[in-house]
Design a binder for these strands. Structure first.
Lengths: 242, 242
DNA sequence: GGCCCACCTTGCGCTGGCGCAACAAGAATG
DNA sequence: CATTCTTGTTGCGCCAGCGCAAGGTGGGCC
């Protein structure tokens, strides 16, 4: 599964400081500090569908997604996948240390071709101690993700499948949407199967639901591609009382 | 809802140091440090069914549960409750700061009569900076809870109602079980409704399921009381392939 | 002791969504 | 450009679990 094409920064030209300038965990730092951090980083490109790290393995590195998208997944004993989160570029991931863990709690798979920086986990304490705002911002990230998980639990406990799919789509276009002529498109390849793994249903039901919405002009979709043309209507659907 | 009976430590005798001696976030501290921490704490007793703090309110204090049980709940716009977690004694809660938040993300309700210490949130940074192990241990707590939430998402996405109820029961007896003659009893009052709010189903289905298990001798239950007599069998049920 | 209220049980009919199955339509590969 | 693979669509039958409704039971309170 792992792809052979990769580049370590040690052999490549120095990374540009602008990469981290506007990224929350590093935004309070001055140019010298960012230089230090970049010099310690490895940079690497990942093909689509490749695992960056896997659930249960030693958390020996933590990551910062520069470009692309990451899907955080868990596999049941029975082999079914569940998608826990999507991570857009500009965010840290694989930060087991922030949760007091020594192994990764889930698997990270690229949803599109991606580029990520990474550092050895032993630098984590150094980062939190020396770099102003790093700790605070990472805990905010954790907090946001916890909030998202919480919301999903509520949705799964109380909502109908149709509402859950609507909510999942809305979350995706909020986090990773790209404006196009006909609406907002999800900016990485996503299958019905993926959506079903995000909402705890089957690809059949997702397919049927999207077909129905397409007929109503709410969405336009094709192979691995979904465009929401009427977000407002989708919000109404998502909040519809049972 | 809030109960009138309460005691602030400031007016009561000094709290005993043994209270925090074996509690993970404080276990590495010496007697002098524990004294300092206790002198800053307020202690208070809560009746069963009382809200300690509420979702969305300013996170002005953080808490340590000395005795009793806490239910962490969220309410949907439609008014339905979902139980996110149970917190047993000896754990911190209301630690919005550890998630970079300024408001509580959920409501904490006592599941039984409880006693908790609390400190103003402005002391949080002081605690994490000065007290060895405090930060590490609290992030472990966060990590554990994130793991639990994650597991619940997986269960809700992939398992049948019966398995989810079995898993919820097993989690409860692991965290808060008390050995009795006929098995392991959940150590605080719990209704079918509560279980349904933990598993995303209805009290009817929970009632039917428990009745069936009772006939098979797996559990014994009464009003607000559940005893698991055959945990092993329950584990088999929880893991049963669809 | 008797009333009331909160909690629990159970029967019955209905339906949302699943599982199966067969097929369609691009994309990728040689 | 033929073949194969992956992804998406749709019809159909079925059933787990829900909603409704009616009734039971134990505890707390006047």
């Amino acid at each position: 599964m792992q792809n052979a094409v990769m580049t370590r920064s040690r052999t490549a030209p120095r990374l540009d400081e602008s990469l981290l300038n506007n990224v929350p965990p590093f935004s309070k730092l001055d140019s010298r500090q960012i230089r230090e951090i970049l010099d310690l980083a490895s940079s690497r490109r990942y093909d689509e569908g490749v695992a960056v790290f896997e659930e249960g393995h030693d958390a020996d590195r933590f990551y910062m997604l520069l470009d692309g998208y990451i899907r955080v997944v868990r596999i049941t004993p029975g082999g079914e996948q569940v998608i826990a989160l999507h991570i857009p570029s500009g965010q840290l991931f694989g930060i087991a240390r922030a949760l007091g863990r020594t192994t990764y709690p889930a698997t990270a798979i690229t949803a599109a071709e991606s580029i990520a920086l990474s550092w050895p986990t032993r630098l984590w304490d150094q980062f939190t101690a020396h770099y102003d705002g790093f700790a605070t911002e990472t805990y905010k990230t954790v907090g946001t993700r916890v909030g998202e998980m919480n919301t999903r639990i509520m949705e799964m406990a109380t909502q109908q499948v149709e509402q859950r799919i609507a909510n999942a789509l809305l979350r995706l276009i909020n986090q990773t949407g790209r404006k196009v002529a006909t609406g907002i498109e999800i900016d990485f390849p996503i299958t019905r199967q993926d959506l079903s793994e995000m909402t705890g249903t089957t690809l059949h039901t997702v397919s049927r639901t999207l077909s129905a919405w397409e007929k109503q002009g709410l969405v336009a979709s094709g192979r691995k591609r979904i465009t929401v043309s009427d977000p407002h209507q989708l919000v109404l659907l998502a909040n519809a009382a049972r």
